[in-house]
Simulated assay, not measured.
Amino acid sequence: MRGWFGSLRTVYQRDKPQRLPGVERDPVRLVFFSDAVFAIAVTLLVLEIQPPEDFGHLLEGLGRLWPSYLAYAVSFLLIGQVWVNHHVMFEHIRGIDRRILFLNTLLLLDIAFLPFPASVLAGALHAGEGLGVAVVLYGVTFWVAALLFNVLWAHARMGGLVDAGALPDGGRAITLRFATALVWLGVGTVIGVFVPVAGMAVIAAFIPAYYLPIRGE
């Protein structure tokens, strides 16, 4: 009997999935938690839009809120792109380690902050002042998110945590997509220092450009 149990233990140990040192095999919980943060971030965006106080001239008052509508729409679509990028990336990551957990936490820290620069941008558009600073703050916040995506993806690839099926063509396509976002948002932010409206237009133009196909994707 003891020999039978010993054989069973050997088979179990042999067939049991082996974890790499410092690696958590299943990233599902990380993705679920990240989705919750993205959902909260896009929900908070709408709280910046306050209804007009003068209901006697409601249509005119609603029209004056166009900066809030603009900041809301652009921010929602950009955060939506970040969410899509996050899912695309983790569809190819087969396991996570502590560095990925830390980098993803920094990314979520940035995402949760995004409703604030969106509110500042809307306020600057309303006031007609401080638009340059508002655009730079807005652009830098999204640029940091793009930077963290590139660092996280690079670590996953170099650490052997990416599914081999995603490489090389798929991996290069994702790398190109993330690098393009970093450069594009950076250029828009720099332009915003000198010509705020043009800088914001460049940042917003990344929304339709993101959906253009990339070879190998």
Rank of each mutant, 00 (worst) to 15 (best):
Thr43Arg: 04
Ser75Asp: 07
Val28Pro: 00
Pro117Trp: 08
Arg14Asp: 12
Ala112Tyr: 00
Leu185Arg: 02
Phe178Thr: 13
Val28Trp: 05
Gly63His: 12
Gly159Ser: 13
Val133Gln: 10
Ser75Thr: 15
Phe32Gln: 15
Asp163Ser: 12
Ile214Asn: 01
Leu109Phe: 10
Glu91Tyr: 08
Arg2Trp: 06
Gly128Gln: 08
Leu65Pro: 03
Ala41Cys: 11
Met1Glu: 11
Leu65Met: 09
Arg29Ala: 15
Thr141Asn: 10
Val84Met: 02
Leu8Asp: 11
Leu121Glu: 10
Trp153Pro: 01
Thr189Ile: 03
Leu30Arg: 11
Leu58Met: 13
Val42Trp: 00
Leu58Ser: 02
Phe113Ile: 13
Trp184Arg: 01
Pro208Phe: 05
Leu152Gly: 05
Ala181Val: 05
Arg9Gly: 03
Leu147Gln: 11
Ala154Trp: 09
Leu212Glu: 04
Ile174Tyr: 07
Gly123Phe: 03
Phe55Asp: 14
Val11Thr: 12
Gly216His: 03
Pro196Trp: 04
Ser75Ala: 09
Thr105Val: 07
Leu47Lys: 04
Arg177Thr: 07
Ala112His: 00
Phe206Glu: 13
Ala134Met: 05
Ala156Val: 12
Glu129Ile: 06
Gly63Trp: 12
Tyr210Ser: 10
Gln18Arg: 15
Pro17Gly: 14
Tyr138Thr: 11
Trp83Asn: 06
Asp26Cys: 04
Ala164Lys: 14
Leu121Asn: 01
Leu176Asn: 08
Glu24Asp: 14
Asn150Pro: 03
His155Asp: 12
Leu121Gly: 02
Gly80Ala: 02
Met1Tyr: 06
His92Asp: 14
Tyr210His: 15
Leu70Arg: 01
Asp110Thr: 15
Met1Ala: 14
Arg9Ile: 09
Leu176Tyr: 00
Ile79Ala: 03
Asp26His: 03
Gly3Ile: 14
His87Gln: 05
Asp169Thr: 11
Phe38Asn: 03
Thr10Leu: 10
Val37Ala: 11
Glu53Tyr: 04
Leu182Met: 11
